[in-house]
Amino acid sequence: MVCGYQREETPAGGMTFACFCDGGQTTGRCGAGSKRNEGPIVGAVVAVAFLCLVILTCFLACRHGSLPFKSKNKPGTRIESFLQKNESSIHPKRYTYADVKRMTKSFAVKLGQGGFGAVYKGSLHGRQVAVKMLKDTQGDGEEFMNEVASISRTSHVNVVTLLGFCLQGSKRALIYEYMPNGSLERYAFTGDMNSENLLSWERLFDIAIGTARGLEYLHRGCNTRIVHFDIKPHNILLDQDFCPKISDFGLAKLCLNKESAISIVGARGTIGYIAPEVYSKQFGTISSKSDVYSYGMMVLEMVGARDRNTSADSDHSSQYFPQWLYEHLDDYCVGASEINGETTELVRKMIVVGLWCIQVIPTDRPTMTRVVEMLEGSTSNLELPPRVLLS
């Protein structure tokens, strides 16, 4: 509708209003009256619709933890960013998934299986390797990054060597030097005294001191201090000469050299080897001493394998094993070594060092440097830790 209007002054001083439209002349206003009220109505509808959209968006954000229109990163994006930022410090070579399949001959020989995935035997440039295939995951890859970042910074005879890695979509693999004798768990914790996997006390002692040297290196020797957080027999690998090598850095924490206390989210490690302070701050701060505790528990298991010298129906079978060792130290050492003086000394060293390492209060535990000194020194200089801390 086309309209125009005209205002005229009346003789009395008032105003008249005339609207000329193609539908005829009207007075008072131009156009149909219904058109005049549409603006506020439309505005109110738009406002209500927008408010509903905001409420729906907030609901979805609270329920799913993200905005419905927020784009999700592709798997591995965070890892790719990490690798780019640390390119200069990461030395292992990167391989494609096709390379990994060739190395393992399409994963023909499986060496082991765990919660992380599976390990396969392979060959790289004529050298035997172990390929750890991590489970396909949509996660942010924290354990993968920990592993690559930690081992890339190490070079020690008692720390496993990472030769390469693969990151292709959701496929993640870590390529290590091959350890023909598997893990310590395979040898040190058999209940069969006649088993071919049973190691001598001398060899167990060498493994204990080698592992201690590896931990000392991680805590003090490399450029960036590393706390492992998962020291246990399964993560101590043995080469062809039974030289121990610390492996599996998925839970490791990189620390500044001057940093003593460590902040972590939630407990990490394996039940039975986790230090008390990792569970609760009331025992002290988390630090490299948490690894010391795990090491001590592992050494006492290496010495004890309680099925050897204790029976299921004995009075002490249900007693806390470190406490039982403390109370029967001399008898145990003699019985375990079969009246061999040198072996008795080795067994005693391992027990006393292990008891010191598992002290409840972190500050009462020795450093790994001190642990190495105690194992290399004489038993005459070793004192038992306070008994009250074992109760």
Rank of each mutant, 00 (worst) to 15 (best):
C357Q: 01
E8R: 09
Y5P: 06
D315Q: 15
L251N: 04
K121Q: 05
L111Y: 05
V388C: 06
A12N: 13
W201E: 07
V119Q: 02
F283W: 08
L390R: 00
G43K: 11
G24S: 15
L53S: 06
Y295C: 04
K132A: 03
D331I: 10
Y295G: 03
T211E: 01
V334C: 13
I175L: 00
C58Q: 09
D239R: 12
F50G: 04
L375D: 05
V2Y: 15
D239I: 08
Y178A: 03
C21H: 08
S287N: 05
G28F: 12
L389F: 02
V347P: 03
A275W: 00
T16D: 15
T77F: 07
Y97H: 04
K105T: 13
L218A: 05
G39F: 11
L238Y: 04
S66N: 13
K35H: 15
G169E: 04
M145S: 09
Y176F: 01
R94V: 02
S200D: 15
I286Q: 02
M302T: 04
T369D: 11
A208T: 03
I79P: 02
C357G: 00
I55C: 06
E87A: 15
S66W: 14
D331Y: 10
V303I: 12
H219G: 05
K74Y: 14
R94K: 11
K72E: 14
G210L: 09
K85G: 13
C62D: 13
S391H: 04
D239S: 02
E342Q: 09
G112Q: 13
C255E: 10
A188W: 09
V334P: 14
L389E: 00
M1E: 11
L67Y: 07
L60N: 11
I151T: 04
V2K: 14
L300F: 06
R172D: 01
W201A: 07
I209N: 10
P180N: 07
T154G: 02
N257H: 08
V227F: 09
A118H: 07
E373D: 11
V131H: 01
S34Y: 08
N194Y: 15
F283L: 00
Y217D: 08
P40Y: 13
S195W: 11
K35V: 14
K281D: 07
T77L: 06
G65M: 05
